[in-house]
């Protein structure tokens, strides 16, 4: 089982090894001092080099959707003060509905970047077994790939188009979903 402390250690290590981009497929509902440490470490990572960025999964299973109206970390840091953190969620390509394993919470309604066409439960083989993953974990990895391919293959004279054409803004409450009951509208004044 993972913990924010392990993630914090991992980020420190990544910084020491020169990583410019972090892809994080972990989500916690942990608001202990350890989680505070994680935010400090992420802040340090981003502040030391403006070319660094972090791509986070927006969430995971529907059971954890908006648990106790608490925001998950670290993806919620994307709209709580830290720069260059991107929260990614996955939506169905044709309907725009968030995929079952892609969290869509009250706060993500206007904050997440959605990757459309992200398939649910992709099969992948590890050393010992075949596992499945999808949803926002897929979306985060896909966003990193998209980002890398765009700016590495570009070169100094590349033609700039709408780089985020494959990314769409999502507003959960506008979609019909079996789990819509979990969504909460952002209050308006």
């Amino acid at each position: 089982m993972s913990s924010p402390f392990r993630v914090a250690c991992g980020i420190r290590y990544a910084a020491s090894r020169g990583a410019k981009i972090l892809c994080m497929s972990t989500v916690y509902y942990d608001f202990s001092a350890t989680a505070s440490l994680l935010k400090d470490v992420m802040t340090d990572y981003l502040s030391q080099d403006s070319s660094r960025s972090i791509f986070c999964s927006g969430g995971s299973d529907s059971l954890m959707i908006d648990a106790g109206n608490q925001e998950p970390i670290p993806s919620s840091y994307s709209y709580n003060g830290l720069p260059r953190i991107f929260e990614l969620i996955a939506v169905d390509a044709s309907t725009g509905i968030p995929l079952p394993r892609s969290n869509c919470r009250s706060s993500s309604t206007n904050n997440s970047i959605a990757i459309s066409g992200a398939f649910n439960n992709l099969e992948c083989s590890g050393s010992d077994s075949v596992g499945q993953f999808g949803g926002s974990e897929y979306a985060a990895a896909k966003a990193v790939n998209f980002y890398i391919n765009t700016y590495i293959s570009g070169g100094p004279n590349y033609f700039r188009t709408n780089y985020v054409s494959n990314l769409s803004v999502i507003s959960c409450q506008q979609h019909v979903s079996p789990i819509q009951g979990y969504y909460k509208l952002i209050p308006t004044p």
């Binding site: 892809c23 497929s25 992709l122 099969e123 992948c124 083989s125 590890g126 050393s127 010992d128 077994s129 075949v130 596992g131 499945q132 993953f133 974990e137 897929y138 985060a140 990895a141 896909k142 990193v144 790939n145 890398i148 391919n149 590495i152 293959s153």
Partner: peptide
């Protein structure tokens, strides 16, 4: 080493069509 596959899959997605990475 990845024992359950998720990390391997994520790595594959990131590496797709990427060079100098």
């Amino acid at each position: 080493f990845d024992l359950q596959g998720e990390g391997s899959g994520i790595n594959q997605i990131i590496l797709n069509n990427s060079t100098n990475l």
